[in-house]
Amino acid sequence: MDEKDVELLSIVEEQGRLSEDQLAKMIALPADEVTKRLRRLEKDNVILGYSALVDWSKTEKAEPVTAAIDVKVTPTRGRGFDEVAERIYRYHEVKALYLMSGTYDLSVVIEGESMSEIARFVSEKLSTLESVISTTTHFQLKRYKHDGFIFVDEDDQDPRMVVSP
């Protein structure tokens, strides 16, 4: 991996919808070279996928309920946290999973259609895993910023005048 690969990755991570021709101009390489590099990075699992960030509150579809779950686990001999993490990330509800420092070992981000669906996931799937000692669930109430994108419209700002002594 060279400097051009890193530059290409940075641009794609920030602006995944750019065409290969646009990317080629931005990093000063021929378009066919950019195509080769992207395919290699995808094959090597450096680029894992491309996605869109959607503000579901502006659509007719009901917003999914998102929760962050702090999980305390007992690591397994020889595999540490990896074994239990692998069991957890295989559930389709799990959108993200991180090993953390601090009081809890894992942070699990899940989505569901309702709070009760998430509660069922925690009580029936997550808490029943042998390595799981405890969980703490935090429901996302409002999204202000995610992946660098601000979700609050300027029109939604508080119109009240600031009064100070």
Rank of each mutant, 00 (worst) to 15 (best):
S123G: 02
P159G: 13
A52N: 12
L48G: 05
K61D: 09
P64C: 12
L53G: 06
I118M: 01
T59Q: 00
R143F: 02
L18D: 06
K72H: 07
A62L: 07
S107Q: 03
E86W: 07
A68H: 08
F149D: 12
R37Q: 08
E33N: 09
S134W: 01
E117D: 14
L38C: 08
D82H: 09
K142W: 02
G49R: 12
V73M: 04
Q140G: 14
R87T: 12
M26F: 00
S123E: 05
L48K: 13
T137N: 00
E13R: 15
E113G: 15
E154A: 10
E14G: 12
L126S: 11
S107H: 00
I69C: 08
V152L: 15
D21F: 03
K58W: 00
Y50M: 07
R143S: 13
S134R: 01
A85H: 08
T74G: 05
D147Y: 09
I11F: 06
S123I: 00
I11E: 10
V12M: 14
L141M: 12
S123P: 01
S51G: 15
E7Q: 13
P75H: 04
G16P: 15
A68E: 12
K43T: 11
K36L: 13
T59Y: 01
D105F: 06
R90Q: 14
L9Q: 03
G49E: 06
